[in-house]
């Protein structure tokens, strides 16, 4: 009779413990909060599913969710094609490869709150380089503390600057894994640059691009720090994304029950879309 080595389970235990403490226990606590009301002092009162009903029918929640979806859709529509284009333009060999890779990795190394602070100063109309240039040299009325359009443009440009590199690096990894004979065969057949991209490079990059879209979706859908530091959700509520609204409700208003219900609905959206991406990725692999 074949005996199986079960020792591998022991090696999985630390990960299970880690996941339990940083994900499972907080999640269970949030579920508990979502059906109760508290005024502090560790006193809780049963509220049932009222918070969920409030949230699902709240105009404020719908507006914040709409802004969050719009933000994610815009940055995905920009970052994925831009990242692929930059990866295609990068050299595949020679000394410039390292230079390009280091330059691409730089924005990813900067902490999120620093990115927000940096862009905040950069775009100030009186002392910021970009703000001063736009207002005084180009003559464009650009002030993200007053104009919602300027605020939206700024958070999108900031995110594109910060995260396109990730798409570039993933797409580049996919590109350099394509064996040279594919290109040689395409050359013999007289394939155009577009045909090489469409029938060789894009299919070979499909897997890494799916991962890139999944990562960028999850990150942008949960974005908080950069936007909060840059605009604080303003002017008005124009850049109050779902994550910012959630923190306002939870910490600003100390409305823990409402915030817990809101975060569970938020979690359900993220989980569904992540699962869809994962399923599509695995189906393609089959």
């Amino acid at each position: 009779m074949k005996t199986e080595n079960q020792k591998a389970w022991l090696f999985v235990l630390p990960v299970l413990a880690l996941v339990a403490f940083n994900a499972l226990i907080p999640l269970m606590t949030v579920v508990n909060y979502s059906v109760q009301e508290t005024f502090g002092n560790n006193l809780f009162f049963w509220q049932g599913l009222d918070w969920f009903e409030n949230i699902l029918r709240s105009d404020r929640f719908h507006a914040a969710l709409g802004r969050q979806v719009m933000f994610t859709a815009i940055i995905l529509a920009i970052e994925i094609p831009l990242g692929v284009m930059i990866a295609l333009a990068m050299p595949r060999s020679g000394p410039w490869v390292s230079v390009c890779l280091v330059l691409m990795a730089l924005p990813l190394l900067i902490p999120w709150n620093v990115v927000g602070a940096m862009w905040n100063i950069f775009t100030l109309p009186d002392i910021g380089l970009l703000g001063y240039f736009m207002n005084n040299v180009l003559g464009v009325d650009y002030n993200m503390t007053q104009s919602p359009t300027a605020a939206w443009v700024t958070i999108i440009v900031m995110d594109v600057w910060h995260w396109t590199s990730l798409v570039v690096l993933l797409a580049y990894a996919g590109l350099i894994s394509i064996p040279e004979p594919y290109y040689q065969a395409a050359k013999i057949d007289g394939a155009s640059n577009w045909s090489v991209f469409r029938y060789i490079q894009l299919p070979k990059m499909k897997r890494v691009l799916t991962i890139a879209i999944l990562l960028r979706f999850m990150d942008s859908f949960n974005i908080y720090t950069e936007v909060f530091v840059l605009t604080g959700g303003g002017p008005g509520n124009s850049t109050t994304l779902l994550s910012i609204d959630l923190v306002k409700v939870a910490l600003g208003q100390f409305d823990l029950g409402n915030a817990a219900a809101m975060s569970l609905v938020y979690f359900a959206f993220t989980l569904l879309v992540s699962w869809l991406f994962y399923t599509i990725m695995m189906r393609d692999e089959e």
Partner: peptide, 15 residues
Amino acid sequence: LSWMAWTWPTALVFI
């Protein structure tokens, strides 16, 4: 576990 604010209905869901 009082800080986790357990209730019977939520406990039953997790059980």
